[in-house]
Amino acid sequence: MSSDAPLILGFDTSAPHCAAALLRGTEILIQHQEDMARGQAERLMPLLEETLAEGGATWADLDAVAVGIGPGNFTGIRISVSAARGLALGLGVPAIGVSSLEAQAFGTAGVVVSSLDARREGLYVQVFGTLTGSQPGHCTLDTLPSDIPAGTEPTCLGHRANEIAALCAGTVATARYPVAEAISRVAATRLGRIDVPPPAPLYLREADAAPSRDTPPALLDD
């Protein structure tokens, strides 16, 4: 892979993990994913620095940063989104937000039903690969999106995929890429576009009553 190919640092803390990947063109140079229920705020920047160092790069080499915007853990999303916006401002590079649902579906052909755990029997669901497109939503197994095309045998990925597949006559598969790699690859398809807004948290339900022990940093305004 040419050293002139765009270099993208992607990361995500929208779930109980801290994940990062370094993408050069179409090649993943290095990636890490550490499971953790809390502590992402303290771990994220050291992990990004380690990822850059192991990939033989520095902050100044980056052409963009890519970040998971959720849906998922409210505090975790704010941690990574605010970090991405701060890095973009400091480095003078674009920050590109990618939803967790899109990252999970990326690289899977045909109609895809991507689902994530929203807790309390809830699901975050989005349908990809249809002509009309679909918006992400919060639902249950009893209230799945009505825009899953009949007769398409969609591929179902993620939380409770087996049950969703049974309800919509689909098949079950696993995500093609780890989350940080997928975020980086989706961002690469958007690099250079002028219609990409700054990343912002994607919240699809109200926050739980009990606050997280991690205090999220404030989001930076452009």
Results as ranks from 00 to 15, higher is better:
residue 86 G to W: 10
residue 183 I to E: 00
residue 125 V to N: 12
residue 146 S to D: 15
residue 92 G to E: 03
residue 108 T to Y: 04
residue 148 I to T: 04
residue 157 L to W: 08
residue 174 T to P: 01
residue 114 S to A: 15
residue 186 V to L: 11
residue 175 A to I: 01
residue 172 V to M: 10
residue 113 V to P: 13
residue 122 G to C: 07
residue 164 I to N: 01
residue 187 A to E: 03
residue 178 P to N: 04
residue 141 L to F: 13
residue 75 T to R: 13
residue 180 A to D: 13
residue 88 A to Q: 03
residue 174 T to Q: 13
residue 79 I to S: 09
residue 129 G to M: 13
residue 116 L to A: 14
residue 123 L to E: 12
residue 90 G to N: 12
residue 77 I to Y: 02
residue 97 G to D: 10
residue 135 Q to R: 14
residue 103 A to K: 04
residue 94 P to I: 13
residue 161 A to G: 05
residue 141 L to H: 12
residue 154 P to I: 02
residue 107 G to V: 06
residue 75 T to Q: 03
residue 178 P to G: 09
residue 149 P to D: 04
residue 88 A to D: 04
residue 122 G to T: 10
residue 108 T to M: 03
residue 98 V to S: 06
residue 114 S to M: 07
residue 100 S to R: 09
residue 83 A to R: 05
residue 98 V to K: 06
residue 167 L to H: 12
residue 88 A to G: 15
residue 91 L to T: 01
residue 108 T to G: 03
residue 180 A to M: 06
residue 145 P to Y: 08
residue 160 R to P: 06
residue 112 V to K: 09
residue 80 S to F: 05
residue 89 L to H: 08
residue 120 R to I: 10
residue 121 E to D: 14
residue 185 R to L: 14
residue 149 P to Q: 09
residue 118 A to Q: 10
residue 121 E to A: 12
residue 85 R to S: 02
residue 182 A to W: 06
residue 150 A to I: 10
residue 82 S to A: 15
residue 138 H to L: 08
residue 92 G to M: 08
residue 125 V to H: 11
residue 173 A to Q: 14
residue 161 A to W: 09
residue 182 A to G: 10
residue 141 L to A: 11
residue 102 E to C: 05
residue 181 E to C: 15
residue 157 L to F: 11
residue 182 A to Y: 06
residue 73 N to M: 14
residue 126 Q to F: 05
residue 135 Q to S: 15
residue 99 S to H: 13
residue 133 G to C: 10
residue 84 A to D: 02
residue 117 D to V: 02
residue 95 A to K: 06
residue 149 P to V: 10
residue 139 C to P: 06
residue 103 A to T: 10
residue 144 L to E: 07
residue 165 A to G: 06
residue 121 E to T: 11
residue 161 A to R: 12
residue 110 G to Q: 08
residue 170 G to T: 06
residue 84 A to P: 03
residue 116 L to C: 02
residue 142 D to C: 00
residue 145 P to C: 07
residue 112 V to S: 04
residue 135 Q to C: 04
residue 116 L to T: 07
residue 143 T to W: 13
residue 157 L to K: 12
residue 162 N to G: 05
residue 82 S to I: 12
residue 73 N to Y: 10
residue 179 V to Y: 00
residue 173 A to F: 12
residue 77 I to E: 08
residue 155 T to W: 14
residue 104 Q to D: 08
residue 173 A to G: 10
residue 161 A to Y: 09
residue 104 Q to K: 15
residue 97 G to F: 11
residue 124 Y to Q: 02
residue 168 C to L: 14
residue 174 T to G: 14
residue 190 R to L: 15
residue 83 A to D: 02
residue 162 N to M: 09
residue 188 A to S: 13
residue 75 T to L: 15
residue 84 A to T: 06
residue 94 P to W: 11
residue 95 A to P: 05
residue 152 T to A: 13
residue 101 L to K: 03
residue 148 I to Y: 01
residue 73 N to H: 07
residue 181 E to S: 14
residue 142 D to M: 08
residue 155 T to G: 08
residue 126 Q to R: 14
residue 172 V to W: 12
residue 128 F to D: 04
residue 100 S to L: 04
residue 138 H to Q: 00
residue 95 A to V: 06
residue 96 I to K: 07
residue 170 G to H: 00
residue 101 L to D: 04
residue 119 R to E: 06
residue 165 A to K: 01
residue 158 G to R: 13
